[in-house]
Design a protein around this nucleic acid. Structure first.
Length: 111
RNA sequence: CGAGUUUUCCGAAUGGCCGCGGGCAUGAGCCGAAAGGCUGUGCGUGAGGAAAGUCCGGGCUCCACAGGGCAAGGAUAACGGGUAACGCCCGCCGAUGGCGACAUCAGGACAAGUGCAACAGAGAUAUACCGCCGCGCUUUUGGCGCGGUAAGGGUGGAAAGGCGGUGUAAGAGACCGCCCGACGGCCUGGCGACAGGCCGCCGCUGUAAACUCUAUCCGGAGCAACACCGUGGAGGGGGAUCAGGCCGGCCCGGCUCCCCCGGGGAGGUGGCUGGAGCGCUGCGGCAACGCUGCGCCUAGAUAGAUGGCCAUUUUUAACAGAAUCCGGCUUACACGAAGACUCGUAUC
RNA sequence: CGGGGUGUAGCGCAGUUGGUAGCGCGCUUGGUUCGGGACCAAGAGGCCGGGUGUUCAAGUCACCUCACUCCGA
């Protein structure tokens, strides 16, 4: 992921939640906030409610893979936070992919 | 062949494209004064049998005491061994269950003291309701009173050793024979728990996962421990004011300036993986395990690395993801593999 | 990493030394009223989160386990 770094600090997450816009899908919620940087910053939130440790790892890997394969479709200059909902634990890869992209399109982060 | 017991192992494989963490190398590119950093390339490596629950035991670090004892609190509980240690493991004893292979057991002490035992029942740790027997009174096929008795009745988880006899007014370990159990002594076997035998003396309810007693062990906290580096800012000390600036008419003084000290927030580095390590051979031991020799190096992240798309086998693979490290325990788990053994049936 | 708490009727909760599981609201039926509410009377509804054990007997005691929840670093 050449043009993307990860979102690390809790304060960054809170700023995106408070100041950003959101799009809700059955399996996930995407928050976005325009920053004007040259790169995107991406963070994932998968809480314990979703499942046990290996389930959460699987969900997070799939979401990261979706972003990696579609990175060229994303506009630069956004902070993005993807929150997995409970249903994401049993959802197939294709469903996560379509929901992620449609949510990104609604927020204007995807061309 | 059927039914079953038990131990151990495995924890999908191979290939293609894209992608991730760590390590090593780099006559490549960029940044930098340098150390080095970033990117790229190459090689090799990258989750488990439970990584889980955090139930025990240790290593390590800091704190306390630096000698010992007592008390409090907690843990453990037949015996012998293994181990760094353990509440773990092995062997063995006893009890219980099973035809058996075998499995399970918080398995010390209620015969030191205290407590509890509902309901039922006459009576619950000692008692006389019915019954039996004797004596007295009486209205005499009966009733009442006094006394003896624990054999029979019913209740209960439990009613005071069991069966048979002697005995007696009726009865009773009151006495006798056999059996059961407890305690004490002796003998035999065993390292020991214990087992077997003989003698003596007894017959005492259950419950310590009730208080308690006995024996043994335990200082506390935890890698977000702990150690180091640490821009700025607050603070303290010194210097220069014969350098400059501000407050000021000037001096003193204050700020600015320079140096040092300093606890240490954000952040970073170490701790961080070569270890009570793994595999194989040989020896000792019933075994757990120990010893010798040879070989091997096998994750170390820090928002936290294993995913996506296919192909083939055999279907769409179970439970499930390291975070300081080891030894155990417990719990979850798909398809399987191997060894040993028991019972039944049939045949030889 | 460490330490607590809770689970009982549809809902909210009681239930010490083990001894027949209760309260309030709700529900059903009947009464009262012209009718409803309130009130009165009667009633149904529980494998005490799950498993194993100790005991004559377990919601209660012990161990294992599941779920929810809180606190400290």
């Amino acid at each position: 992921m050449r043009f993307t770094t990860s979102l690390k600090k809790n304060g960054d997450f809170r700023r995106v939640y408070r100041k950003g816009t959101s799009a809700v899908r059955p399996c996930l919620v995407v928050y976005a906030r325009r920053t004007g940087r040259e790169e995107n910053r991406l963070g994932f939130t998968v809480t314990a409610k979703v499942g046990k440790a290996h389930v959460r790892n699987l969900v997070r890997r799939r979401l990261r893979e979706i972003y990696r394969l579609h990175e060229k479709d994303f506009c630069p200059g956004y902070d993005l936070v993807v929150v997995a909902r409970t249903r994401a634990a049993v959802a197939a890869y294709g469903r996560l992919e379509s929901e992620f992209l449609s949510a990104g399109k609604e927020l204007g982060a995807v061309r």
